[in-house]
Simulated scan of single mutants.
Amino acid sequence: MSRTRPINCIIPPYILDKLLESPDRDVRQAALDTMLTTARLRGERMVRASIAGATATPGDGRRTIFDCDEGVTLSRANLVRTEDGPESADTAVDKAFEGLGLTRDFYRQVFQRDSIDDQGMRLDGYVHFDVQFNNAFWDGQQMIFGDGDGTEFSNLAGSLDVIGHELTHGVTENTAGLEYHNQSGALNESMSDVFGSLVKQWSLKQKAEEADWKIGAEVWTPGIAGDALRSLKEPGHAYDNPQFGKDPQPDRMSRFIHLPDTPRGDSGGVHLNSGIPNKAFYLTAVGIGGFAWEGAGHIWYDALRASSADTGFQDFADTTYQKAGDLFGAGSPEQAAVLAAWAGVEIQISGVPKARTFPVNGNGRVGREDGIAALSRQLGELNAKVAALAKDLATIKTNR
């Protein structure tokens, strides 16, 4: 059964639910207003998506920013910046403009992708949406940014990884079309976290070991340093504070969270269970080393394009293993890193027995053997980076 694509919001419902419990009346009201507006927008998108022939507007990826001036009707927003226009005196306008451009350029330069739909789709952004709106989202045609309530959220246009996250929902919709519920929905969210993080790393020219691997740190709880909405490196440890409690994301399959496939149930826990493939990507990236978009990023991007609407964790893991072999060679360190990473989140690649780890020479480096007669080969000696990954996985097992 076909499911209508929802609007894709950066802030999950369980965060807004926590805000409804705040002792601050203004914070509670902002959360309630955000939830009501989001529900209305979801209904509007269902109507729009049902209209046959509705397509995105081509335009060589050109950016246009509009100011909603705290309104909610996009058609009444004022044009405030164009691709050829000057900078604005409004920080939110310029941050949105810059973030759209960096995300567009990342996909163009790294993956030779022509905007979100690979056909030059123009990028429209709307800032100052609604009053104290605690969210940012991609609605299938444009980016919308709320200003936040000023207490738990600052202006959502201020985070590059949030912008990269949301635009990647558009990429996913125009490639695999991952259905937004249960495991396929969690993969959908994970793809946005992965490539949102990579956009930021690419813009800063950070290697995998240098990145913070956090999502939304700049706009989430501005009064609390060091936390974020999610962490790819440590799902379940992005935040821990009195306002919101402890980050509930799982980091392995034995901790998978089963929730109802409803809006209040986060469509089956899509923002929660995304922590599992997020962790697998992080482990792959640090296992390969260097710039994450060059190795792990290409593997994940090719796997995304090869996936379908109902792809789950197991199928996606198997596809990344295959794509790592296609891109870097069967038995390559990159493919071995993918194998070890998914094992680290308790997903075994289909048809590949659990790898045996053993020293292969006198310097203590580590190799892995896949043992499959049909393949008639071994996964060769891992490089020093994969040896470091093995130590990381051993630490994870010790801390269980």
Rank of each mutant, 00 (worst) to 15 (best):
I372D: 15
A317R: 04
T57S: 00
P235Q: 07
V345E: 07
A340S: 05
I10L: 01
V80N: 00
R48K: 01
K246R: 15
E83R: 14
D118P: 09
E369K: 08
E87Q: 02
E209N: 15
F291S: 08
G216F: 15
P23I: 14
R365Y: 06
I144H: 04
C68T: 08
R255D: 13
K323D: 07
T357Q: 15
Q201S: 10
Y126R: 11
M121K: 14
A238M: 08
D149Q: 11
G265T: 11
D261Y: 00
T91Q: 13
A309L: 06
D227W: 09
T311E: 08
V286L: 13
I15R: 03
N363E: 04
T357E: 15
S308K: 13
P6I: 00
D370S: 15
L379G: 10
S197N: 15
I257P: 04
D227F: 09
V72F: 02
G164T: 14
L187M: 14
S88N: 00
G245L: 05
P248I: 08
L41F: 13
A336N: 08
M143T: 10
L393T: 00
P235K: 08
V366Y: 10
F281Y: 15
E152F: 08
N399T: 08
K95C: 05
A54E: 01
P263M: 13
A211M: 12
R108Q: 05
A303V: 14
S115W: 05
N182A: 02
F281W: 11
G61P: 04
D149T: 11
K18A: 12
G329I: 07
R365I: 09
